[in-house]
Nucleic acid binder design. Structure first.
Lengths: 336, 336
DNA sequence: TGTGTTTCCGTAAACGTTTTCGTCAGTTCT
DNA sequence: AGAACTGACGAAAACGTTTACGGAAACACA
């Protein structure tokens, strides 16, 4: 390699390398004179501490592992940006891995990060199965989950209140005069989606309207899934005046299908999503949706993780943040 | 901590820990019998090698640093996804940092990654100034740049042929019958943008049409910049039949401005971008653009970097990939 | 049987830090 | 002046690996 080490500095300064270490770490066991002299020499020689060696002896790396299903996804990349910036402020770096929506890969990269001795792991899991599948691992490294909300399992996670959010969305459509609201894209392999559907059902019951659900049998809430579901649906006669989607991505697929069928949004059909991904704000889309507070989620997750790193044997905690309605131009008021 | 180390395994197996290391590393200096026995015990005890300790002695971390201006950006996040997956296949992990479009921060995280002893760094630089600013650093760590194309500087980089791409875009519009084409968003602090503008000028000269440029005096090609530029432009009478944008993000801003002015795309105005970010494929946008082959860029950059890590003193290399036209629905043919 | 070769494994050094412990000089107290 | 204490620093251990070196046993060959 050829970089300058503590020993090199020590030799030039005429002190032991322990003294150099002390000078830089702000130890009180050193005189001001030698401290200043040593620091000056360090700068002159361009010394930078070797994090690897430090990790070796300190038994911590100041690295956080981040596992996302796919960083190439507006929601995840936005979360990642917030996480990285905040982590760096806290003195940590991020090692990022894609699980590619694959449970085996998720386990593999988790184990890999453990071998790297990361201080903790933040993950957006592939699905509900992840909790069980990773149980043996999460016992060994402080781990915080984002987004998949497991009511009954004792895991650390931060999430948005999906049920309330979807309930508010339904109520908003109701307040605009909609009585026949199709819920599009419910999936059963994801707790998040189950909770969101609950919100829709709750609202229907409360408001006295008939629930109407179009299920997504696939494993992902993609543009494609939304498009396919809507396209098939639009082929038959339908009576709803609004579609409420389980995710923004689905809604954008619906927009495409509607466009192809000549169905205008919002004139002919109102449309809502959930997540508030950055796509949705684009003027040609302008989707009314429910916002997940991404920066707050990121900060909460990181704080929770750093806490667990400090005190690993504290009981598990959950943080549930409030979603909020984002009103744009994909819904209109109707008369009954 | 409390994880199991080589020594623990050695004690149980009744061999020296050097033997355990050899069993796992596939060294030939060990008998098949003991190898199998040791490996079995490793598995039973749940041993995973400590990458930090290995890095210490091997003098390499198998970590690649990735510095992007903002991972929360469709182009960057797509690149990051490709880079991470390919890096992992090659036995490397990615440490990701945002420079947040800030030259000082860019230097700071670069130096931080050097302290981490990453084996190499891939970066999407803030701007042309980055090359000079980082010269002292790039001399010490193998570094590959993506995207900012410096004709005259001896850096390692991979890029798309921006000039040819923009020339093709101009020619495509010409072939549809357009003769008055506005080039929107030229910036001067970015070599990429200078090269793209060159392509436009070249084509104009070759085709015998008059160039017409609307400069972007800001430092970023954001949605906002495109919107502001176009909004102001649309306030005055204009005569062009097509707008060619220096980046997709600008074009999407233009769509918004056009929408607000009641200008229909492509009926009233044809519009093209450059980059082919994932946004652009969304049906409500459906932007005709020039594609940057992101996966190929990622793989080329990684290959180039791994090469330089193996042989640090090879001369600097450049890889220029070909862009390609992506025809969607934002342009229409006109008669003259 | 003696010599050389091969196979297998243990010993120990090395990587660059942090930190405990010990030491020595100087200071304070009685 | 002697004892106790304090401040500043060096020596060395430790972190968990990889690998050069050496040695013992087994084997081959004359």
């Amino acid at each position: 390699m050829g970089f300058v080490t503590l020993k090199d500095v020590a030799k030039v300064a005429g002190v032991s390398y322990a003294t150099v270490s002390r000078a830089l770490s702000g130890s009180p066991e050193i005189s001001e004179n030698t401290r200043k002299r040593v620091i000056r020499i360090c700068e002159e020689m361009g010394y930078t501490p070797n994090s690897v060696a430090r990790s070796m002896v300190m038994k911590r790396t100041n690295i956080i592992g981040l596992i996302v299903t796919s960083i190439d996804n507006p929601f995840m990349s936005e979360m990642t940006a917030h996480l990285e910036i905040y982590a760096r402020q806290c003195g940590y770096n991020l090692m990022v891995c894609n699980s590619s929506y694959n449970l085996d890969l998720e386990k593999e990269v988790f184990s890999l990060l453990m071998g790297r001795k990361v201080d903790g792991i933040i993950m957006i899991p592939v699905g509900s199965e992840s909790y069980e599948a990773l149980r043996a691992f999460t016992a060994q490294v402080p781990t915080v989950f984002i987004g998949e909300n497991m009511i009954d399992l004792p895991e650390n996670y931060v999430s948005v209140d999906n049920t309330t959010g979807m309930q508010q969305a339904t109520e908003y459509l109701y307040s605009l005069g909609h009585r026949r609201i199709l819920y599009l894209g419910q999936r059963d392999n994801s707790m998040t989606h189950r909770l969101r559907a609950d919100g829709y059902y709750n609202a229907c019951k409360k408001l006295g309207i008939e629930p109407d659900v179009l299920r997504n049998t696939g494993s992902r809430s993609s543009f494609q899934a939304g498009y396919t579901l809507a396209k098939e649906h639009f082929d038959k006669p339908f009576s709803e005046t609004a579609i409420l989607c389980a995710a923004d991505t689905l809604a954008i697929g619906v927009i495409q299908a509607a466009y192809e069928k000549g169905i205008r949004i919002p004139q002919d059909l109102s449309l809502m999503g959930f997540d508030n991904i950055s796509f949705s704000a684009l003027p040609p889309i302008s989707l009314t949706t429910v916002n997940q507070p991404k920066q707050e989620l990121a900060v909460s997750a990181m704080d929770m993780l750093l806490n667990r790193i400090k005190r690993p044997d504290t009981p598990h905690t959950k943080t549930i943040l409030s979603p909020s309605l984002v009103i744009r131009n994909s819904c209109r008021a109707i008369e009954n």
